[in-house]
Design a protein around this nucleic acid. Structure first.
Lengths: 211, 211
DNA sequence: CCTACCGATCGGTAGG
DNA sequence: CCTACCGATCGGTAGG
């Protein structure tokens, strides 16, 4: 057997694995991580339940890999493009705008995967609760770091409260996510954009130039 | 059989019915309306599954009555006390403060029942999706009515955008709910209070007295 | 309110 | 990747 054949088969297996996870992120964004069942996935992929199962060995492993796959998608769609902007207020604005665009384009058909996870697991103890906590802290930390950088650069007022700023920006984004998915009304996204612009404007250093 | 005995039995049945719904609202606020099962309820109430079932005739009826029971609790804990304040900005502030207090006191152990419903059903078509839409519109309408009243009284600036104001206030409240339940950190509620105060202050009419 | 059941579906296993 | 199963749980029914 030529090694090329083995390589092809292995990469087919990897591709299938990735394809399963892609469908899994979409199902979980709509139905939740608890609504992600082997039977539902098998049906969507038109394979047997045990065919899906064999790729993961347990439902929990499937759920964990689904979270990791969703993380990569959000990294690619929101975080990386925002961080490719020049640091400071531009990055802060880009982070908000990229998130809103990712919601508006329905990158996940059920809206932001991690907002869904947050709401589903906020009151249920266990591993996923802890992961939702960690995810929230990471997301807040990202915002806080970018905002602190903007403040150090003198683009935001020296006395701006970073945690308060992050709360207010993130509130607008999360709220836009839930209500846009519920109502499919572009006005929701427009209001979030306006709210974000106002929050950042009011946090600006008095003498700073506009980015 | 004296009519008193019949009355007692009927009121026992009613009390049991109400007790089931009370537990149901608590379960659903944590596990979601999909996580509310007859078996779970029966276990919590220490009766048989069919004993619970007999009270409702279908699972959907149980879910519908659970939503109605939660609505009454929110009406009693948030809406009615807020509307008992003098109309205008005082009512608007009271609505926000009553909501935050209701989240902080964990009136529902999983946080605001309708925020949970919104996030659970935002992307799932069906009857509950439509009820979540209707609930959101009612909630927004309540805020918009109180805010418009405040504007007509000259307490808010004549050019204030009511929909934008409601979006920004509600964002702070919803976000406080999800993050408070996730992190149990009082700082979350404090940030929401500060955000709400800022939003209302900036919407004030230039010459209006402080409420 | 109960027991005892129904078919469907759950996660997971055996064996191929 | 498949079929064929396992025990548990789902909503719901029958009969009391």
């Amino acid at each position: 057997m030529p090694s090329g054949a083995v390589g092809r088969r292995r990469s087919d297996g990897k591709r299938t694995h990735a394809a399963i996870l892609d469908v899994a992120t979409r199902i979980a964004s709509i139905e939740g991580l608890e609504g992600l069942t082997l039977g539902r996935l098998a049906e969507e992929l038109e394979v047997s339940k045990s065919g899906v199962y064999a790729h993961f060995g347990s439902r929990e492993q499937l759920q964990l890999e689904t979270i990791a796959a969703a993380q990569e998608i959000m990294e690619r769609e929101v975080v990386a493009p925002a961080l490719s902007e020049p640091p400071g207020v531009r990055q802060l604005k880009a982070l908000c705008e990229r998130y809103l665009s990712y919601v508006e384009r329905l990158v996940f058909p059920g809206g932001c995967f991690f907002s869904s996870l947050l709401a589903e697991m906020d009151a249920r103890p266990g591993r996923f609760h802890e992961m939702a906590q960690a995810g929230a802290r990471e997301w807040w930390g990202l915002f806080a770091g970018v905002a602190a950088d903007a403040r150090e650069r003198g683009e935001l007022a020296a006395d701006v409260d970073i945690d308060q700023l992050v709360f207010e920006l993130d509130s607008s984004l999360e709220s836009a996510n839930y209500y846009y998915v519920l109502l499919r009304d572009p006005a929701v996204i427009a209001r979030a954009r306006r709210a974000v612009a106002g929050i950042i404007d009011r946090a600006r250093a008095p003498g700073a130039s506009r980015a």
